[in-house]
C-alpha cells in the first residue's frame, strides 16, 4: 500500500517536472501551442470529470460554459478594456452564476432527461453566441484579444510564459480534483453516482451534492475558456458547439472517468493522436467513434482506471460475486 502510494507520488512529480521542462524541449512553436491547448482542454475536462466521473451525471452543455468563460474574457478585455485578470475573475463568477442557475433547473431532471436538458442548454448558448452579432460578432468571432497583462516583472507576451500560466491553472485543477476526491464531499459525490437512493437514505443531501458538482464543473470549464481566449487571442462560436463537448467526453473516457490523472492523460494522448492523424483530419472520428464505443464497453474506467480494474479483479478472487441489488423505490429529492 505504502509502496504504491509513493510510486504514485513519484509519477506525479515526474509529470510536473516534464510539464516544467516541456517548453525548453519543444522548440517548434506550433507544437508548444498544441501542448498548451491540450492543457487548456484538460482543465475543461477536469470539470466534466467532476460532474460525470464523480456524480455520474452526463452533462452535454459543457462547451457552452467553456464558451461563456471565453467570451466573457474576450468581450471584457476588447470592448470594456478591462485587464485579463479582472476579466478572468468575472468569467469565474459568471460561469458560477450560470452554472448555479442551469444546475438548479436541470438537476430537477435525472438520468436521460438531464443529459438532453443540458444538451439543449449547450445548444442555446451556442446559438446565442452565434446569432447575437451586435454583442459577439457572430460567425466572424473576436480577434486581437489582448494577452494577459504583466504581473510585476512577469510578462505574458511570449508563448512560453502563457504556457506556464496555463500550467499553473492545470496544476490547480488537478490538485482541486484530488482534494475533493479525498474529502467527504468527494465521497458523497461518488456515493450519489453509485446509488442516489442509498445516498439519500443514509442522509447525503443528493440534490445539493449534485448541484455543487455541476457548479464546480462549469467553473472549471469557464476558467479553461478564459485561458483559451487569453492564450490564442481569437475566438469563434465554434468553441461552444456540442462537438466540443463530445471531444471533451472522448478525452475523459480515454483518460478515465472519476480519476485524478484521467483528464490530463486523455487530453494529451488524444491531442497527440489527433496531431499524428492530421492528414486524416476530417475522418478522425472513423477511429475515435468506435474507440469511444469500445472503451465504454470494455474499459469504462479508461487508461487511468486500468490499475484499479486489475486490483479489483484480483480482490474478487475466491469470493462469490455479490448478489444483484434489487431495485429500490426512487428516493424523493428535495426541491
Amino acid at each position: 500500500m505504502r509502496l504504491r502510494w509513493s510510486f504514485r507520488r513519484l509519477a506525479w512529480m515526474l509529470a510536473l517536472l516534464a510539464g516544467l521542462l516541456a517548453p525548453l524541449a519543444v522548440g517548434n512553436p506550433y507544437y508548444l501551442q498544441v501542448l498548451t491547448l491540450g492543457l487548456i482542454w484538460a482543465i475543461g475536462v477536469y470539470g466534466l470529470n467532476i460532474v460525470l466521473g464523480f456524480t455520474g451525471q452526463l452533462s452535454l452543455g459543457h462547451a457552452g460554459f467553456f464558451g461563456i468563460g471565453a467570451y466573457t474574457v474576450g468581450l471584457l478585455t476588447l470592448r470594456v478594456g478591462l485587464s485579463f485578470w479582472v476579466a478572468l475573475l468575472a468569467a469565474v463568477v459568471l460561469t458560477m452564476i450560470a452554472g448555479w442557475l442551469v444546475g438548479w433547473i436541470c438537476l430537477r431532471t435525472r438520468g436521460h432527461a438531464f443529459a438532453i436538458f443540458t444538451m439543449a442548454v449547450g445548444v442555446i448558448i451556442n446559438l446565442l453566441i452565434d446569432k447575437w452579432d451586435s454583442l459577439t460578432n457572430g460567425q466572424v468571432g473576436l480577434v486581437n484579444i489582448p494577452a494577459p497583462n504583466a504581473i510585476g516583472p512577469v510578462s505574458f507576451d511570449s508563448a512560453q510564459a502563457r504556457y506556464y500560466l496555463v500550467l499553473v491553472f492545470l496544476v490547480l485543477a488537478a490538485y482541486a480534483t484530488w482534494a475533493i476526491l479525498r474529502s467527504p464531499i468527494g465521497r458523497a459525490m461518488h456515493a450519489v453516482r453509485q446509488s442516489e437512493e442509498l445516498a439519500a437514505a443514509i442522509g447525503i443531501p443528493v440534490m445539493r451534492t449534485k448541484r455543487l458538482a455541476f457548479v464546480l464543473s462549469t467553473v472549471f470549464a469557464g476558467v479553461a475558456g478564459a485561458l483559451f481566449a487569453g492564450y490564442l487571442g481569437y475566438l469563434g462560436p465554434d468553441v461552444t458547439g456540442v462537438d466540443i463537448t463530445f471531444d471533451m467526453l472522448l478525452y475523459l473516457l480515454v483518460g478515465g472517468m472519476g480519476t485524478v490523472a484521467g483528464p490530463l492523460v486523455g487530453a494529451l494522448l488524444v491531442g497527440a493522436l489527433t496531431q499524428v492523424l492530421q492528414a486524416f483530419q476530417q475522418y478522425q472520428m472513423l477511429i475515435f467513434g468506435p474507440v469511444l464505443v469500445i472503451l465504454i464497453r470494455f474499459f469504462p474506467g479508461g487508461l487511468a482506471g486500468i490499475p484499479a480494474g486489475i486490483r479489483r479483479r484480483r480482490e474478487r478472487g475466491p469470493n462469490p460475486p455479490p448478489l444483484a441489488a434489487e431495485p429500490i423505490p426512487a428516493a424523493r429529492e428535495e426541491v
Partner: peptide, 12 residues
C-alpha cells in the same frame, strides 16, 4: 434504515 436486499456502495 437498512435495505431489503444487500445494497451497499459496491465500489467503495
Amino acid at each position: 434504515r437498512t435495505f431489503q436486499s444487500t445494497h451497499l456502495f459496491q465500489e467503495f
